[in-house]
């Protein structure tokens, strides 16, 4: 057997699901930026979070990021930290998150699902087994915060080989010299972190998103989603006007938190309220028209 050559081509050896590409193509044809929503799987419990997940496409989410909670979310702010704690306290396991996606896929063939989290639970599950199970469940992509290109052999290259998109974060500190390295094995889209910092703590307003997106576009043909710090429909609209999609996470997770009772259980209106917020954000990226 010969030594495998380093893989650098987008897409790897197995075909990906194509859902992310098709969704961005459809957005382009519709002439608007997309809405990417983030929610933590299992927050505040499996059933409630499954109901939110199932309702997201109809509420207007174009792509879905599903957070895999971790005890030590080093890149996340207080909102997603607390959300992860709630999900873990409710006992969610990685295998159950894959089950949630499988159930979601039963009724929803088109909306891409991207799992987002940290490496240790995946490493612990076993990389090959995880990729096979995720692909089988209908997962389209992965965002793993603590795997920079320097660690591509861990999960990125195996994911590409398994036909799962590996979406990388680019940040204001990723300069032009480093960008090609970051983009080399990225597939699906590029997630631009518009602020230096952790999730949900600083406002993206005032950040020059347009020139950042233009800079990235000089280096890649992949769609650019922008996130970290986008909270309101207006901000989402602003970002979606200059990028291919806007990501909203902490603001939705805060909605979950504000509809829990004193014992941390979901109040009856929780699912509907969160989906209504998604609806408002979706209206934002659609230019405010009804």
């Amino acid at each position: 057997m010969s030594v495998p050559a380093p893989r650098t081509a987008v897409g790897g050896t197995a075909p990906d699901s194509g859902r992310i590409r098709e969704r961005f193509q459809a957005l382009k044809e519709a002439g608007r930026g997309g809405l990417v929503t983030f929610l933590t799987a299992g927050d505040p419990d499996r059933e409630t979070s499954s109901r939110i997940l199932r309702g997201l496409p109809a509420a207007g989410a174009d792509l879905i990021e599903l957070g895999m909670p971790f005890t030590d979310p080093m890149a996340d702010g207080p909102a997603i930290q607390a959300s992860s704690q709630r999900a873990l306290k409710a006992g969610i396991k990685l295998a159950e998150i894959l089950d949630m996606v499988r159930a979601f896929r039963d009724g929803e063939a088109d909306t891409p699902v991207i799992l987002m989290g940290y490496y240790n639970p995946i490493y612990n599950y076993g990389v090959e087994r995880f990729l096979a199970d995720a692909k089988g469940a209908g997962v389209d992509g992965l965002i793993v915060v603590d795997l920079p290109p320097e660690e591509d052999r861990e999960l990125c290259l195996p994911a590409l080989a398994a036909g799962v998109n590996f979406i990388r974060l680019a940040t204001p500190t990723t300069d032009d010299a480093r960008l090609p390295k970051v983009l080399a094995n990225t597939s699906g889209f590029v997630y631009y972190v518009s602020i230096m910092g952790i999730t949900g703590t600083r406002s993206a307003a005032g950040v020059d998103v347009r020139s950042a997106v233009e800079r990235l576009k000089r280096h890649t043909d992949l769609p650019i989603a922008v996130g970290f710090g986008i909270k309101t429909p207006d901000q989402a609209a602003e970002v979606a006007a200059v990028a291919d999609a806007a990501v909203v996470g902490s603001a939705l997770v805060e909605q979950v938190k504000s509809h829990l009772d004193a014992d941390g259980r979901a109040k009856p209106e929780l699912v509907e309220t969160v989906l209504k917020s998604v609806g408002a954000l979706a209206e934002g990226v659609r230019g405010g028209s009804t």
Partner: peptide
């Protein structure tokens, strides 16, 4: 050069920190 002691070590950090 990649910071590994056998299979241990490495650089498992967010991209924001990587240049630093």
């Amino acid at each position: 050069e990649q910071g590994h002691f056998g299979v241990f070590g490495g650089r498992f950090v967010a991209e924001t920190l990587m240049p630093l």
